[in-house]
Design a protein around this nucleic acid. Structure first.
Lengths: 337, 337
DNA sequence: TTGTATGCGTTATCAC
DNA sequence: GTGATAACGCATACAA
């Protein structure tokens, strides 16, 4: 391991026979430098393998050109078979890469992790903070915003603290379309497997289900899940116990819908003949389930891109960044309903 | 969003009626400060919400107190049902948290991402770089090391560039134990589903299989996989086609073993009566498969912890950090073999 | 035990 | 177009 000294601007300047200021200009792509000198400097940079010291640069520019994406979950939770986080990351990553910003991923499953992130951001390690999801009335986004740090959330924050820009999808519209589709098909005992009630996505989809059923004058039947497949399996069993005559299920996530399909099959119910099933997400795997899953498509990667775009505008000092962006959802009809 | 000015050391000093140096001492936990003054400073810090500017601090200390963990994969690959990365992250995370270092996660599936990481590290954003896995003869670890940046890899690097400290597990020993167990049980047509051959883990496990079979005087039968469940399904089909009389399979990953179980069941073979199956990893889910999977346990989280420990020692300037650490593996007997 | 003075490597504001 | 020079916010050797 060669612990070579890191070359500084000064070293490059000496080698190229110019001043530090000129080197700085070349490195930062200023156009007011003579071509000959520019080439000489670039050559010196290459020869020495010069890379600007980020700390020194940040100190004066007040920028780091990197942005944190917070995954408020433990490693195990993040790396489950849930494809939500990967899609968010992909969307954010593409957009930031195009803007030449570095994406810094942080997981904050623990309380301590939470506090670390706050210090990390306030210490100026990153120019802004993106939240991939929010649990309950998490005060962190608001706290950071109040510190003057640009923040964008995925999903409307439930905190009643300072308002923070967010990107969300039209949960209510998507759920309404799904439930109406079931009603129109003549289903009368329509159950739901709800998502976690400490997240807006869980709350909003359950509310959408209730509203739509009420309008249709039909009774509700709710089981609780947490978006995972296992919880879908258990919730479906619960539902069958409580009302063996049910003829449709709306699951608040694709994974729970897959779990429901599994339980229904084990219970000898045919889908969709006996029981219709609709999910929410439209993950790739839902095209290949048995039967292929009818589901509400939400544009997750697009949501990530939008978050990144808002962030870039905030950082650029754009005054009229929208308080929120709500992306459309869409019912995708396949064979399960 | 209140864009309050961030307080500096100077502001705290004024408020507490002391010099900047004293504030700095208190903030950094120096013991040579009078209790009364210490309290006054701490109070001022709290009132102002002071957090040291990381850029300024790094500039003088040459440290950032954060460490990068590189996942050389795309988001989709990282967030599959593979539990390897979560375990590595958990191990690294625990150790770094205890040392009060910030973990920065970076995914470098693309070539561009690769280059970004190099610049990020060389620019001094992090004190060291951990690689969660290595594909082929990746030159990046060596390149960083040559720049004087502490690097630790998971798995022996295949590059013949500069040597880099690494943590690995005893692939050969584990595989040998597994294959010998099959031989001792009277199995004579022992196939393997190999892992990707651009990774040491894939290579070493295949080599271990071959060596042990040769010693036993038995013929080999190899199908190719990439550690995923799907590849295990396909490879098992391939194996059954090529030799319907096979009576055992060693899969180089638990997921591939699960895929194999699935294929065998579909083909009407009983496990372990007709075909014995052994995996490699010992993920939690392998306790609950049907039948429970006999497998080679590798201590993944422990491996992550060890990587972090080596890194902390490197950063601390420890002279005699071992070139490599090889952790033991262990055959875990359950019902599939 | 506390304060003063210096420098870390860069960018930006000036003159030239 | 180019070169001095002053910040940026902090830690630390040295003085007191």
């Amino acid at each position: 391991m060669t612990t070579r000294e890191r070359p500084t601007l000064e070293a490059v300047a000496r080698r190229a026979g110019v001043s530090r200021a000129t080197v700085s200009r070349v490195v930062n792509g200023s156009t007011t430098v003579a071509a000959g000198i520019r080439d000489a400097v670039n050559q010196a940079v290459d020869e020495l393998g010069y890379v600007p010291n980020q700390a020194a640069r940040s100190l004066v520019t007040q920028r780091t050109d990197s942005i944190a994406l917070i995954l408020p979950e433990t490693a195990n939770r993040v790396f489950s078979d849930d494809l939500f986080f990967p899609a968010i990351i992909r969307g954010v990553g593409m957009e930031l890469e195009a803007a030449d910003k570095q994406l810094v991923l942080m997981m904050t499953g623990s309380e301590a992790g939470h506090h670390r992130v706050e210090r990390y951001a306030v210490a100026g390690h990153v120019d802004g903070v993106l939240f991939a999801s929010i649990h309950g009335a998490d005060p962190l986004p608001g706290a950071l915003a109040q510190r003057g740090i640009p923040v964008v959330c995925s999903g409307r924050p439930m905190s009643d603290g300072p308002q923070v820009p967010y990107v969300d999808v039209d949960h209510a519209g998507g759920v309404a379309a799904a439930v109406r589709h079931l009603v129109a098909a003549g289903r009368r005992r329509i159950a739901t497997i709800a998502g976690p009630q400490d997240m807006v996505a869980g709350l909003a989809r359950l509310a959408g289900y209730r509203d739509t059923l009420r309008q249709a004058g039909l009774p509700e039947l709710v089981a609780q899940g947490d978006f995972t497949r296992d919880s879908g399996i258990a919730a479906m069993r619960d539902l069958l116990d409580r009302d063996p005559s049910l003829d449709a299920v709306f699951a608040a996530s694709d994974l729970m819908a897959h779990g429901a399909l599994q339980t229904l099959r084990a219970a000898g119910r045919r889908v969709p003949d006996d029981v219709a099933v609709i999910g929410f997400d439209d993950f790739d795997i839902s095209r290949y389930s048995d039967p292929p899953l009818t589901t509400v498509r939400q544009p997750i990667a697009e949501s990530g891109r939008t978050m990144a775009q808002l962030m870039l505008r905030l950082i650029a000092g754009d005054e009229d960044v929208p308080e929120s962006v709500v992306l459309p959802t869409e019912l995708v009809l396949r064979e399960s309903a």
